[in-house]
Design a protein around this nucleic acid. Structure first.
Lengths: 198, 198
DNA sequence: TTGCTTGTTGGACATTCGTACAACAAGTGA
DNA sequence: TCACTTGTTGTACGAATGTCCAACAAGCAA
């Protein structure tokens, strides 16, 4: 009789991705305190030693997970814009209010985000990664505001304001879901846009 | 000759406070990853065992530190309002823009805050503490908006918006200090208040 | 089938963690 | 001076951490 293989080899990129996804799940389920090389390995169904084979250290794995989740959020925002009515204002509304619905407004996603934030001050690579993501988000808001006809000299300030408002509402929505409802957050954001575009 | 005492007894409340302050310093300096019973004890200049004598566990010490820092922030906001010109609008401006200056806008303070946030989802006491603090902040904004003559039915929504805007600007100011300047954050917030109170 | 590359395993290793506790001593009251 | 209370020390303990590496074996090439 033939014995079952003890393990299966995986395409390097696929294995790498499975480790990243396992890290995201552990981070979401157990928070940053419960995230370790071993718990990630268990979640991914591999031995602990394999983690070190793909990533030079746990911080690099966290940074890779950050980049991956960042891409997912960006895709969710793209999808929201694509599904919106083809008017500049509708696209802008869709972009900013997507943060108040799943999968972005999610306490588990916040756990992941907090883990990254906690590394920003000590890990320069993660700090740069955060800077780039923030700048990219703000740039997209600026473009959408430009499409709505906002004067160029007011775009920077308005984008900072809208980004901060959305971030603040998203944060509180994740931390204290009972404080206000997602549609209230959407209404508040649309009202702020009305005032900025008036 | 008389030998120097091996240690000095402290008033229980004073010792308790010194442990809390040491925790805040360690949290600010080393982040949540570098915070442990031992590092706190070293910072406070006491033996590791003493921590367990005053707090049933490390989580209780973190929660107590949270409450303490929260009180300091609240005092800083009070002071800002007290120093403002005695008009309703000036007091409101002072309250909301105080978050963009020291000691509140500080990357080290953010480290402390992130440590607390990372416990919100797993520690019910800290979650409740956060809810209460958020509600208190929003209630103060509501009162200040009321003083400015904002219609009662619009106060809740406006307070949520301003609180989120201030939180978002404060967060980004701490995470990416080079993205925009504190006075830009102040100008953005005052413009938002102008729109809400118009 | 045979040999080779390398993904993968599983455990060793030194550290560090939170907690518990017996022993010590500082300060107080008699 | 002499207990007595209790704040404080120092360490021991098991568990968990990140990193490392020799050995194994899956899958491909010949």
């Amino acid at each position: 009789m033939s014995s079952k293989p003890a393990f299966k080899r995986a395409e390097p990129d696929a294995r790498r991705l499975s480790l990243i996804e396992a890290t995201a799940r552990v981070l979401a389920r157990d928070g940053v305190a419960g995230t370790s090389v071993r718990s990630i390995a268990v979640e991914a169904g591999v031995s602990p030693g394999l983690v070190g084979h793909y990533f030079p250290g746990i911080d690099a794995l966290i940074a890779a997970t950050y980049a991956h989740i960042e891409g997912q959020v960006s895709n969710a925002l793209d999808a929201a814009v694509a599904e919106a009515a083809p008017t500049p204002r509708a696209r802008l509304d869709a972009f900013v209010t997507a943060s108040f619905r799943g999968p972005i407004a999610d306490g588990q996603l916040l756990s992941t985000w907090i883990a990254f934030w906690s590394l920003v001050r000590s890990n320069r690579a993660i700090a740069r990664q955060h800077d780039e993501q923030y700048a990219a988000f703000r740039a997209r808001v600026e473009n959408l505001l430009d499409d709505c006809g906002l004067a160029p000299e007011r775009q920077r300030s308005a984008a900072i304001a809208i980004t901060a408002l959305v971030d603040g509402l998203w944060l509180e929505l994740c931390l204290s879901p009972q404080a206000f409802r997602p549609d209230e957050a959407g209404a508040i954001t649309r009202a702020a846009l009305d005032a900025l575009l008036a």
